[in-house]
Deep mutational scan, measured.
Amino acid sequence: ATVHVKGVTYHFDNPEQAEKFAKRMAKELNGEVHVDGNTWHVD
């Protein structure tokens, strides 16, 4: 799974980790999470 945060890409072997990371980053950055298959975007 892949997480894109403000133009930076993070790779996770575990999709659950990717989801938790994306949601945590969105919270910290006051952003929104969008999911597209195995790819998470934090804007």
Rank of each mutant, 00 (worst) to 15 (best):
E16A: 12
H34S: 11
D36L: 12
D36S: 13
K6E: 08
E28H: 08
N30R: 09
W40D: 01
F21N: 01
G31K: 06
E28F: 07
K27T: 10
E16G: 08
D13K: 10
G7Y: 04
P15L: 11
Q17L: 12
R24M: 14
N30G: 14
K20W: 10
V3Y: 00
K27Q: 13
V33L: 13
T9S: 09
N38Y: 10
N14Y: 10
H4N: 09
V33Y: 12
Y10C: 03
A18Q: 00
E19D: 07
V8Q: 11
N30Q: 09
A18G: 04
V3T: 02
K6N: 15
V35K: 14
A1R: 04
Y10A: 02
E28Q: 10
Q17F: 07
D43M: 15
W40I: 06
K23G: 05
F12R: 00
K23S: 06
H4K: 12
E19L: 05
V35D: 03
H4D: 05
A22W: 01
V5H: 05
W40N: 02
V8D: 07
T2G: 03
R24D: 14
H4T: 15
V35R: 15
N14L: 09
M25V: 11
A26C: 07
F21W: 06
G7T: 04
E16R: 09
N14V: 07
E19M: 07
P15V: 12
G37I: 03
H41A: 06
R24A: 14
W40F: 13
G7R: 04
Q17W: 06
K20M: 12
D13H: 09
N38H: 10
N14K: 09
D43Q: 14
N38L: 11
G31D: 03
G37E: 05
M25S: 04
F12N: 00
G7P: 03
V8I: 12
Y10N: 01
R24F: 14
A18E: 00
G7E: 05
T9G: 04
G37Q: 06
K27W: 12
K20T: 11
G31T: 08
V8C: 09
E19P: 01
A18V: 00
E32I: 15
H4P: 00
K27L: 13
A18K: 00
T2N: 08
H34K: 12
G7Q: 05
W40Q: 02
K27G: 07
E28M: 10
A26M: 04
E32N: 12
D36F: 13
G37R: 05
V3I: 02
M25E: 04
V42W: 02
A18L: 01
V8E: 10
F12H: 01
K27S: 11
A22S: 03
V3L: 02
F12A: 00
N14H: 11
G31Y: 09
F21I: 02
V8P: 00
D36V: 14
F12W: 03
N30T: 05
V5L: 08
V3Q: 00
G37W: 03
T9K: 10
T9Y: 09
K20H: 10
K23Q: 13
F12G: 00
W40S: 02
T39R: 12
A26G: 07
N14T: 14
H11E: 07
N14G: 07
E16K: 10
V42G: 02
K27N: 10
H34E: 05
Y10H: 06
P15C: 06
V42T: 02
V8G: 05
G7I: 02
R24Y: 14
H34M: 09
V5G: 02
T9Q: 09
K20R: 13
D36P: 01
D13W: 07
D43E: 14
E32M: 14
G31E: 04
K23M: 13
M25F: 04
Q17T: 11
D36K: 12
V8S: 07
T39G: 10
H34F: 12
L29F: 07
P15F: 12
R24W: 14
P15I: 12
G31P: 01
A18T: 00
T2Q: 10
D36A: 10
A26Q: 05
G7M: 04
N14F: 09
D43K: 15
K23I: 14
G31V: 12
A1H: 13
K20G: 07
G37L: 04
E16I: 11
E32H: 14
H4M: 13
Q17C: 07
E32G: 08
H11V: 10
N38K: 06
A22Q: 01
D43R: 15
H41Q: 07
Q17H: 11
G37T: 03
V5D: 01
G7A: 04
E28V: 09
A22K: 01
V35Y: 14
T9A: 11
D43F: 15
W40M: 04
R24N: 11
Q17I: 09
D43H: 15
F21S: 01
H34T: 13
E32D: 10
F12M: 02
A22V: 03
H11L: 09
E16D: 12
D36Y: 13
K6T: 07
T39A: 14
E28G: 04
E19H: 05
G7F: 04
V8N: 09
V3R: 00
Q17G: 06
N30L: 07
Y10E: 01
G31S: 08
E32P: 04
V33A: 12
V8W: 09
H34L: 08
A22R: 01
A26K: 04
H41L: 12
K23P: 00
N30W: 06
V8Y: 10
Y10T: 03
F12D: 00
A18Y: 00
V3A: 03
A18H: 00
H41Y: 15
N30E: 07
H11D: 05
G7W: 05
M25R: 05
E32Q: 14
V8T: 10
V3H: 00
A18M: 01
Q17D: 15
K27V: 11
H41D: 04
M25D: 01
R24T: 11
D36G: 04
D36Q: 13
D36T: 13
H4F: 13
K27A: 13
N38D: 08
L29T: 07
E16H: 10
R24S: 11
V42R: 01
N14S: 14
G31W: 08
G37C: 02
